[in-house]
Amino acid sequence: GATAVSEWTEYKTADGKTYYYNNRTLESTFEKPQELK
């Protein structure tokens, strides 16, 4: 079976905060997504 690849990509803001962006739902969040835990 195919492994589900996380759609979340980790980015940093200009002031160094980490956030996560989902390229399928176009959602962004500062909290670590469930799929990455």
Rank of each mutant, 00 (worst) to 15 (best):
A2N: 14
T9G: 06
P33Q: 02
K32G: 03
N23G: 06
S28V: 15
D15A: 06
P33K: 02
F30P: 05
E27T: 05
Y21M: 07
A14F: 04
T29F: 05
N22P: 01
A4R: 10
N23T: 15
W8P: 00
A4N: 13
Q34W: 10
S6E: 10
Q34P: 14
L26I: 02
K17Y: 08
S6K: 09
K17H: 07
E10S: 04
K37G: 15
T9R: 08
Q34V: 12
A4D: 12
Y20F: 05
K12R: 12
V5F: 12
V5M: 13
K12L: 11
Y20S: 00
T29N: 03
G16M: 01
A14V: 11
E10N: 01
Y11L: 15
E10R: 03
T3L: 13
G1K: 13
E7S: 04
P33C: 03
E27Y: 03
K12G: 03
T25W: 02
F30Q: 07
T18P: 07
D15Q: 04
S6F: 08
T25R: 01
S28K: 14
Y21K: 08
T25G: 01
T29V: 10
G1W: 09
R24P: 02
E31Q: 09
E10T: 06
E31G: 03
T29R: 07
R24L: 14
Y11K: 14
E35F: 06
K12V: 14
E27K: 06
T9D: 06
E35H: 08
K12P: 02
E31V: 11
K37H: 12
W8E: 00
Y20R: 00
T29G: 03
N23A: 11
W8G: 01
G1N: 14
T9S: 11
T29P: 01
P33G: 02
W8V: 01
E31N: 09
T13S: 07
T3M: 14
Y21H: 07
S6T: 10
T18L: 09
E35A: 13
K32A: 08
A14L: 09
N23M: 11
Y20W: 15
R24D: 06
Y20E: 01
T13Y: 03
K37N: 13
A14G: 06
T25N: 02
L26Q: 15
T18W: 05
W8D: 01
P33W: 02
G16F: 01
Y11M: 15
T13Q: 04
N22A: 00
G16K: 01
T9Q: 13
N23Q: 11
